[in-house]
């Protein structure tokens, strides 16, 4: 005679096996992520150069800019050579001190913007494998929750009091690299979403080929920025004059409007 409880016992057994499977898989994934971070961080990179193409789309109009980036990872100085809308060279250090030089007019301007520090950009974070929070912790953000959602490791960061218009940042990692981040305001509305895709796997670090930003404007419009990276080169010696570029001494200092 079959007992009534047999169906319930089979289902319970199946559910227990399923949750044990999830625990085992998540544990292996955590160990794998830690291993990748450890191995990657053991080999610092000195000089990195790459090409960046940034396209900004507003409505049906877009603006394309091609930039060459030269990053000295020891002195933390990043040089950007812009070719459109006009030729410009900017040199930024870790304090956010920026020198902007126009090679045609031989004019230079100086400013300090902490948000544009050489340690606050995609290149710095990925070259140094600081991808777990992409600088949020350094700006005072606090980790409030983290969990696995299928193949994604999702973390939520709360903004410090000093940052008024952002309440939380949600990040998702897959296979040890960030794939998504979302900035939320006080009402839980998304201010900006960023997607990181198509990772290059280099011996020293992993770098996204494409970064897509969607910034939501108050009127319901949005601005989409698509940034593509290519020709990433790593060396132990500065193989270009633009590494730690020096502004010519005869450059004329001008004020920024």
């Amino acid at each position: 005679m079959i007992r009534k409880g047999n169906h319930f016992d089979c289902l319970s057994f199946f559910m227990i096996m399923y949750f044990m499977y999830r625990i085992v898989i998540n544990s292996f994934l955590s160990i794998f992520i830690l291993f990748i971070c450890f191995v990657s961080s053991a080999q610092p990179v000195r000089y990195v150069s790459l090409q960046q193409q940034t396209e900004i789309l507003e409505g049906k109009r877009k603006n394309t800019n091609n930039i060459e980036i030269y990053f000295d990872n020891q002195r933390h100085i990043i040089t950007r050579c812009y070719h459109s809308p006009k030729d410009m060279i900017t040199v930024a250090n870790s304090l956010g001190e920026i020198k902007t030089y126009n090679p045609k007019t031989r004019e230079v301007s100086y400013q300090r913007v902490e948000g544009l520090s050489s340690k606050n950009n995609v290149v710095f974070f990925f070259v140094n494998n600081l991808t777990d929070h992409l600088g949020l912790a350094d700006q005072g953000f606090t980790l409030v929750s983290n969990q696995y959602e299928g193949q994604y490791y999702v973390s939520v960061w709360e903004a410090p009091v000093s940052i008024k218009n952002i309440a939380k940042v949600k990040m998702a990692h897959q296979n040890g690299v960030p794939v998504y981040s979302e900035y939320l305001d006080n009402k839980g509305k998304a201010l900006k979403k960023t997607y990181y895709t198509g990772y290059y796997n280099l011996p020293w670090f992993r770098f996204p080929q494409k970064v897509i930003d969607i910034a939501y404007q108050p009127g319901g419009d949005s601005t989409i920025t698509r940034t593509m990276y290519k020709n990433i080169e790593v060396s132990d010696v500065p193989d270009s004059e633009y590494f730690n570029f020096e502004i010519p001494e005869d450059a004329k200092s001008v004020e920024i409007n």
Partner: peptide, 8 residues
């Protein structure tokens, strides 16, 4: 500008 401070 990469981060939240850039948005601010």
């Amino acid at each position: 500008a990469m981060s939240a401070s850039g948005m601010a």
